[in-house]
Design a protein around this nucleic acid. Structure first.
Length: 195
DNA sequence: CGGCTGATCGTG
DNA sequence: ACGATCAGCCGA
């Protein structure tokens, strides 16, 4: 039910990021179901977080970070790739959670075909890669991620000792915020984007 | 308008 | 280590 989902996402982005680890990302396509387990995420905050898009200003692109928690925030990066985020923040705040890597579970053939690969390795172990595998584009921007045909289903809670926290990737411009331990991944999972 | 920048990826 | 490649943002 969507209200449960919105409530789940209406917490600070760091909490939502940790809570969404181990959940399932599901895409229904005309060719079949694609499913994966979320194994790596990053939290992005509001105006105080120099690594966050919205800290540079509220624009047509970034204003969704202020919108309803649980919406998809999809943007194009480097003119070539898409990234999927989940809007996540408390009342009157801004924030999002970047889905960085997924462990492929179902729809392997469709994913490999879209990625142009013959083996499962490297199909979903990066934010741009998983969007290509799942067929996620700007057409999905603003979609509530509890609803078909693109949705997230919560998994079993993870023991804290299975979760690693590190600085976020590729935000060298972000000053002190680049040191914050806002990247989370499932330890020893072979499908994370990098060590 | 023109100029820059980038929450990436594949290749080497 | 580096280049591809262009939406998004800003300043004029």
């Amino acid at each position: 039910m969507s209200q449960n989902w919105i409530t789940f996402c209406q917490k600070d982005p760091v909490t939502v990021a940790k809570n969404i680890l181990g959940a399932y990302l599901i895409r229904e396509t005309s060719e079949g179901i694609i499913k994966g387990r979320i194994v790596e995420v990053e939290a992005y905050g509001g105006f105080h977080d120099a690594g966050s898009h919205i800290s540079k200003g509220v624009t047509a692109r970034t204003k969704i970070m202020l919108d309803t928690p649980g919406l998809a925030y999809v943007y194009i990066i480097y003119g070539m790739y898409h990234c999927l985020n989940l809007v996540a923040h408390t009342e009157n705040q801004a924030g999002a959670v970047l889905i960085r890597a997924v462990e492929p579970l179902e729809g392997l053939e469709i994913m490999k075909q879209r990625r142009g690969l013959s083996v499962t390795k490297n199909v979903c172990n990066g934010p741009g890669k998983l969007c290509q595998a799942f067929g996620i584009t700007k057409a999905d921007n603003g979609h509530l991620l509890s609803e078909q045909p693109l949705y997230i289903v919560k998994g079993a809670p993870l023991p804290e000792e299975q979760v690693a926290a590190t600085p976020r990737v590729n935000i060298d411009y972000a000053g002190e915020a680049k040191e914050w331990l806002w990247r989370f991944y499932i330890k020893d999972n072979p499908y994370i984007s990098r060590k």
